[in-house]
Design a protein around this nucleic acid. Structure first.
Lengths: 222, 222
DNA sequence: CAAATATGATAGTAATACTATTATCTTTGC
DNA sequence: GCAAAGATAATAGTATTACTATCATATTTG
């Protein structure tokens, strides 16, 4: 995964102009990651982003319809990146049990630096996933957004891991429910550890979250 | 639970004037539940609410600082109501296993009509919990909101059920993580069933969600 | 090197999220 | 029964947000 310079494909219906194809576009995505972290998504505006990158907001509107689709783009990029790691890492594992365990690890462990994509800070983007990702589908127009394919990559990740669950136990009835519970749960718990510790169980330094969900998956399907 | 006319206590720091204490206040909460469902929280405004109840927005601002704290109120009321049902129903159960199973049922089963609180439509409020509740703590000022006690009732519910988990298995290490995963997971999955079915496993008419989380809890802690 | 395309600079608009003021209406306390 | 206190209505006003529009100037590309 070091310095291969691959590209993550994002559904073109999400953007008006491909932000990875120009200097300004790359600035929009990379600086928005910083700014959304700084301000939170609600306080984040295209005007503030424009000021920070030295471009008028009207130029940003040529890339994204609005700040919401920019968030859809970032989150879609993230899951494309996770999917890439997932496929890459589990590809050559034969044992279904080991394969699933590796997948769960990738989904639950804290994000570390990845130098393959110079303009995206994956660690910061991981923070956005933790803090803001549910906002992307908790909207009045979910159905429209879903039809446009905004959540395809995410669904694809859930599908892949669900298949791995079935490879371990083909009779398990709720693979998608289990996997989406785990994926959403991890983000949730990392948020709770940081801001609402009474809703979780934090033990000094140990990565309980990853451990908990790993145990949970195998206990539930066996 | 039929027609006892009890009151759910909501932390007074959440509101400026107690909405349950006046006609206008009760109209604000009951009509906001309808309107938030209709418009989604983002499109919901005090102006629109004012038009619907025939009062100026300035009057609504005397009850709540902003629409966000109104949502905090509604969600806090909901968890107060759930806590009441939880305590009431599990109180006289001796077997720890049965007690926990009953609690999980209350947390996971679909909401049904409750006539004890005339001005609150619990079923509609349950829809708000499913669609909008994560927005209440996914904000830049979580820590401030948390210090003000906005999430105390919710934490109290998690604590109560965590204690029931420990009563079944005192050595289980992650009771809070398990319980908050279940509570959040249920809402999540009900949302997915409705809008993003590929992320879950829907089987005709059966209440899989409740069944799934019930199984999950006991498999994980045993 | 002309034509197409992208960006910058600037302006404008309706809606949102409030705050402020004053008049009226309704309680409640004596 | 009435004055004082408190709540609500009516109205106005403001900064910010979330855009859209226009035109000039760069930059790319065929």
């Amino acid at each position: 995964m070091d310095n291969l310079q691959i590209n993550i494909n994002v559904n073109p219906d999400i953007y008006l102009r491909d932000p990875s194809s120009s200097e300004l576009g790359r600035k929009i995505t990379s600086v928005s990651i910083v700014l959304i972290n700084e301000l939170g998504f609600e306080k984040f505006t295209f005007k503030k982003l424009g000021e920070k990158i030295g471009s008028p907001e009207s130029s940003i509107y040529r890339y994204f319809e609005n700040k919401h689709t920019l968030l859809v783009y970032l989150i879609s990029w993230y899951w494309g990146w996770v999917e890439y790691k997932l496929v890459f890492t589990t590809n050559n594992i034969n044992s279904p049990h080991k394969k699933l365990a590796t997948a769960i690890k990738i989904l639950t462990q804290p994000i570390t630096i990845d130098n393959s994509f110079s303009h995206i800070d994956e660690v910061l983007l991981g923070q956005i996933i933790i803090s803001e990702s549910t906002k992307v589908y908790h909207i009045k127009d979910v159905e429209k957004a879903n039809k446009k394919g905004y959540f395809e990559v995410y669904k694809s990740v859930v599908q892949r891991v669900s298949d791995m669950v079935l490879a371990v136990n083909s009779k398990f009835e709720f693979p998608h429910m289990l996997v989406s519970t785990v994926i959403e749960g991890v983000q949730q718990q990392r948020y709770f550890v940081k801001y609402l510790p009474k809703l979780t169980d934090v033990k000094q330094d140990a990565d309980n979250v990853s451990e908990f969900y790993n145990q949970l998956v195998f206990k539930v399907i066996e």
